Computed example of a mutant assay.
Amino acid sequence: MKTALSSLLAVLALGSAAYSAAAVHYSSGETSTALLEVYTSEGCSSCPPAEAWLSQLVDQPGLWRDFIPLAFHVDYWDQLGWADRFANPAYSARQRGYAQIGSARAVYTPGFMLAGQEWRGWFENKALPVAKGQAVGVLDLKLDKDNVELSFKPQTTAPTDMIAYVARLGFDLDSKVVRGENAGKLLHHDFVVLSLQQVAAKQPLNWSTRLYPNEQGKRQAIVAWINQPGQLQPYQAVAGWIER
């Protein structure tokens, strides 16, 4: 009996360890990788088609290398009768920030920002452009369990006061909406920003932090980008799957 119990505990321990994030190392290319930021809400009836299109990018060969999608769920539609469980006022503030500096004409959903500039191509049924950015340098990301290490090797002289952002993304998430504009619908989500943290450099062009815990989603990814203080447009970005 003791032997059987010991075996069971060993199996459970192995299962728990397998679900912990394994060590991974990702590097960007020399040219800047574009962030595709999609501002969305479960309370917006226009958003499900945009998110269905976004989900198709999971299988695109250029994912993480040529473009990095993020779905920021905003909270300003929660007042319509359905509170989006993924919404965060900080994400709404980020979108408003783009409008305030003139990078977007207004605050709305679904809203698309590509490499820090408003992109209206989705509304015109255009393919996502994957033009190469400027040669800026390589951003390295190391994730070991929940410990994140970032370092940037600039190709030319780069600002040394840059800050980093680290996001955890969740995939294959469903919500059954019972109120609001999407009442009665089962919504499917990918690239959901589950957490976003700002990280100050521990020394010039080097950052470290612990990834916020959030186990939602059948699959997860990590995204990191850097920019100068007071700016929203990413300078360089890197991303990859979180291995289990």
Rank of each mutant, 00 (worst) to 15 (best):
G102S: 09
Y19I: 10
L80A: 04
G217H: 02
V238R: 11
D190R: 07
P69Y: 09
I163Q: 11
D172I: 01
R120H: 08
P48S: 09
N206T: 12
C44A: 08
L169H: 01
W122A: 14
L232Q: 11
Y165P: 01
T160H: 09
A131N: 12
L70G: 00
Y91C: 06
V136D: 02
R65D: 13
D59T: 15
S41T: 08
E215V: 08
Q134S: 12
G62C: 08
W64F: 15
A99V: 07
Y26M: 06
L194G: 03
Q203S: 14
A23H: 13
D174A: 11
G111S: 06
W119P: 04
A201R: 05
L150M: 08
V166K: 01
V238I: 07
P89D: 13
Y108P: 01
R244V: 04
V136H: 03
D161S: 09
P204N: 04
V24R: 09
G43Q: 08
L80C: 05
Q203N: 06
D140Q: 12
I163N: 02
S92P: 10
L70K: 04
Y235E: 03
V166S: 03
W225G: 06
W225S: 03
P154Y: 11
W119C: 07
P49W: 15
L8F: 15
A23I: 07
